[in-house]
Design a protein around this nucleic acid. Structure first.
Length: 198
DNA sequence: ATTATGATCGTCT
DNA sequence: GACGATCATAATG
């Protein structure tokens, strides 16, 4: 069932997130096919930046869906989210990893010649030259464009990475077996092994 | 191959 | 003043 982007992003983040896999995010030079995402909810999700309600920077998450929410991770990495929620609540989808399908040369230069061009949220942000200036921008009409693409590839899900709270909910989605999915798994998991049902 | 550690800064307590 | 929705590098099996 082909949903259009607007209709898709009006849903709760964990519903819209897996449908975003296979879509393409691009700027003028580089295009990335998204293979891994994570869903974040509103004030009810303790792992979300929207947890304590709208503030100065995260207010974008409560704004119109289909816009970008950018944050600085660990003081050095710009990470890109797609704002997504039904009317009245906040939420977003973190673009965690993808495959560079156009502008490989430019992406390589932006990444400082490194191998993994967009494997991980910080790397993906760098490949697309994302900065705080992009936060709040309309992903349908700005420098960054999101193009919804259907995929028939099998989708797997599991616990979110790097999150310390609410690690039990399986709101991370990726295309099963795709080599461009980020390799990071916090191995120091005493309980709840991140096994994937097939 | 996996595991540990340093880098670095905006936001909130 | 502490803490991250992280990544690159170094050390070790």
């Amino acid at each position: 069932m082909p949903l259009d982007l607007h209709e898709l992003l009006a849903q709760q983040a964990p519903l819209a997130a897996p449908a975003l896999l296979g879509s393409v995010i691009r700027d003028g030079d580089v295009a990335v096919r998204i293979v891994e995402v994570e869903a974040y909810g509103g004030p009810d999700d303790p792992a979300s930046h929207a947890f304590r309600g709208p503030g100065q920077k995260n207010a974008v998450m409560f704004g119109p869906p289909g816009h970008a929410y950018v944050y600085l991770s660990y003081g050095m990495h710009w990470c890109l989210n797609v704002v997504c929620h039904p009317e009245g609540s906040g939420g977003g989808i973190l673009l965690r990893a993808g495959e560079v399908i156009e502008g490989r040369e430019v992406a390589l230069a932006r990444r400082g010649g490194h191998r993994d061009l967009a494997r991980g949220p910080g790397r993906l942000g760098q490949a697309l030259a994302v900065t705080m200036a992009d936060s709040g921008a309309d992903l349908g009409a700005g420098r960054l464009r999101l193009e919804l693409t259907r995929t028939s590839a099998p989708v797997a899900s599991g616990p979110r990475v790097g999150v310390s709270r609410a690690a039990d909910v399986a709101w991370r989605f990726w295309i099963e077996g795709d080599p461009y999915v980020s390799p990071y798994r916090r191995s120091s998991r005493a309980s709840a092994p991140p096994r994937v049902p097939r």
